[in-house]
Simulated scan of single mutants.
Amino acid sequence: MLYIKGNRRALLLVVAAAVGLCASAAPAVMSDGDAPADSRRITFEMTYNLSPRGSNCNASLVTLLPQTIQNRQTIHSISYTLEPQEVFQRNGNTYARFEVSNACADVQLVISVDAEIHRYDLETAQRIKPGSPLPPENLAQYLRRERYIETDAGDIKSAARLARGESQIAVIQALFQQVLSRLTYSGFQSRELGALGAWRLMKGDCTEYTDLLIALLRARGIPARAVSGLITNFSDVPHHNWVEVYMKNLGWVPLDPLHAAMRTATFEQLRPIYIYLSTMRNDSVLGGFAIWTCRMTGSGMDVNASLRLTDKIPTNISY
């Protein structure tokens, strides 16, 4: 029994290649006074092509599925060309497991999603003031060190102490600006540096921007977590990582330091381009892979993943 070879990011290059010209399109710059739309209705297809390397190939493919998340996205329907063996939840994420047995010819799995993605950012959260505060025990895990988020490293702790502000939001914004000032966007890279590596090398892609901001926030005692998903506007790959920080009286609020550095977002405003799949940095279900993983027996299979996205009728939602 073996898992499909390749590291967490190498698998994502397959997704980028499959979307063709869209992968090279640069996102529009957000200018002053350019308010994002409230929401967008979209459909997208996550396609997995499995090609047997011989006879009697078996595969168990597990993939993340989007789920309805209040104020962020509404999933109207999900359909499959092959029915999943099971759909299950773990640690707040939703997954589907597909079994392919004794395959001798190519198998294509298409997951079609009809969704509405809503604008949700600090500005929106301050307007609608969502939810009730979580008890401290529910937030403890978002203050700890974990792989790639070295919140207790000396360099990280020293940098976090430099942030000044008269309110929690002011401190968060100071840490946010610290990441933007410290890092230079490297373009998509296969090697993961972690927060400490990003701080020392002063570069990274969306993963490093996310890891570093989370580490700095946690070092200041502010709960933060990584979000992994897809974006509808991208310059290299559709997979994207961003941050959610737990703010007093507001709950979990998304921030996107990389897009802010690229001037396609601000600290207060995000566009409705985010498809949420996971709120875990190190996903044990996927064995550290992003979005999906595949376990095989027999002679094995080659798996190629692709994404196709279509905008439907734009909608506006008042919260």
Rank of each mutant, 00 (worst) to 15 (best):
1 M>D: 13
2 L>A: 11
3 Y>P: 02
11 L>Y: 11
13 L>A: 10
18 A>L: 09
21 L>S: 10
24 S>A: 14
29 V>Y: 14
36 P>C: 13
37 A>M: 08
38 D>H: 09
42 I>W: 07
46 M>W: 03
52 P>A: 11
58 N>Q: 11
62 V>W: 11
63 T>Q: 01
64 L>D: 08
66 P>Y: 02
68 T>L: 02
69 I>Q: 02
70 Q>E: 14
72 R>V: 12
72 R>A: 10
73 Q>Y: 01
73 Q>T: 00
75 I>F: 00
80 Y>H: 15
80 Y>Q: 03
86 E>N: 09
93 N>C: 10
93 N>T: 09
97 R>A: 09
98 F>S: 02
98 F>R: 03
99 E>V: 15
101 S>D: 13
102 N>G: 11
103 A>L: 02
106 D>F: 10
108 Q>W: 07
110 V>W: 03
110 V>T: 14
113 V>Y: 06
114 D>F: 06
119 R>I: 05
120 Y>V: 12
121 D>S: 09
124 T>W: 03
125 A>I: 11
126 Q>G: 05
127 R>N: 12
130 P>I: 14
131 G>I: 10
138 N>P: 00
147 R>F: 13
153 A>P: 00
154 G>T: 15
158 S>V: 15
162 L>P: 01
168 Q>K: 02
169 I>Y: 06
170 A>F: 03
174 A>L: 05
176 F>H: 12
176 F>K: 09
177 Q>G: 12
183 L>K: 06
185 Y>W: 08
188 F>Q: 00
196 L>Q: 08
197 G>C: 04
197 G>N: 03
202 M>D: 12
210 T>L: 04
211 D>P: 07
212 L>T: 04
214 I>G: 03
214 I>K: 06
216 L>S: 09
217 L>P: 04
218 R>K: 07
218 R>G: 00
221 G>F: 08
222 I>W: 04
224 A>F: 11
224 A>R: 05
224 A>L: 04
228 S>N: 12
230 L>S: 08
230 L>R: 05
239 H>C: 06
246 Y>M: 02
251 G>V: 10
253 V>I: 07
259 H>Y: 15
260 A>L: 00
260 A>K: 01
260 A>R: 03
265 A>N: 03
266 T>V: 11
268 E>K: 11
270 L>R: 01
274 Y>A: 05
275 I>Q: 05
281 R>V: 14
284 S>E: 14
288 G>F: 01
289 F>C: 11
290 A>C: 06
291 I>F: 06
295 R>G: 08
298 G>A: 12
301 M>W: 09
302 D>Y: 04
303 V>K: 00
305 A>K: 05
305 A>W: 03
306 S>V: 07
306 S>R: 02
307 L>V: 08
309 L>V: 15
311 D>N: 06
312 K>Q: 14
312 K>Y: 07
312 K>C: 10
316 N>E: 15
317 I>W: 09
